Amino acid sequence: MLPFFPFLIVYFLVLYYKKQKKVALLTAMDVTTIFLIAAVAALFNNTFDSGFGFYLILILLLIALGLIGSAQTRLKGKIDYKRMFRVVWRMAFVLMGFSYIVLMAFGLFSYIIALM
């Protein structure tokens, strides 16, 4: 439920070994995305009393892959799979980070209201 801890651990480990802030940041983002997906799926399931959270995220990622692949085909005539997956994965980091904050705030707020 706390995906920012892996981010900090990976960031400082990569920074220590590689001595490059940009590489450390991007690697930490890539690793943390996995934890964010799991945390957001769990928060979604708890908040909305559902079991569909992970599948919703998976569907959204697949749609994003399809849209970006289609755009690459129209613009360049071919698909660069490595770049396509990297773009979707980094977009997932941003969207899951935002979703994590929103769902966590909503969950805390609803829990406080339920106690009153």
Rank of each mutant, 00 (worst) to 15 (best):
V40H: 06
Q20W: 06
I57D: 08
S50Y: 00
T32N: 14
N46R: 08
M29T: 02
F44P: 02
V23P: 04
A24L: 13
F44V: 01
A42R: 03
I34G: 07
A24T: 14
Y55W: 10
A41M: 04
T32C: 11
K19S: 13
L26H: 05
L26F: 10
F48Y: 06
T27D: 08
Q20D: 08
A39V: 12
F35R: 01
A42T: 06
K21H: 05
I57V: 13
F52C: 03
S50G: 04
N46K: 14
T47E: 05
V40C: 10
F54C: 07
T33P: 05
F48M: 04
N46C: 02
Q20K: 05
A28K: 04
V31T: 13
K21P: 03
D49T: 00
N46T: 01
T47R: 01
G53N: 09
A24P: 14
F44D: 02
F35D: 00
A28F: 06
D49W: 07
A42N: 11
I34T: 13
F54Q: 06
F48D: 05
M29Q: 06
V23R: 12
N46P: 03
N46W: 07
V40K: 09
L36G: 10
N46F: 01
V31E: 09
D30A: 15
A41K: 01
K19V: 12
F52L: 09
V40P: 02
F54Y: 13
T33V: 11
Y55C: 08
A42C: 00
I37N: 04
L36A: 09
L25Q: 13
T27E: 10
V23D: 10
I34N: 10
G51K: 12
D30I: 14
K21S: 02
G51Y: 12
L26P: 08
I34K: 12
F44M: 00
G53Y: 12
L36V: 04
T47Y: 02
T47S: 05
A42D: 01
K21V: 06
T27S: 15
M29H: 03
G51W: 10
F54V: 08
A24W: 14
L36R: 10
K21A: 02
I37T: 11
D30S: 13
Q20Y: 11
G51N: 15
S50I: 00
F48P: 03
V23L: 13
I37L: 15
G51L: 15
L43W: 05
S50H: 00
A42I: 00
F48Q: 02
F35W: 00
T27W: 09
F35P: 00
A39H: 11
G51R: 14
S50R: 00
A28Y: 04
A41R: 09
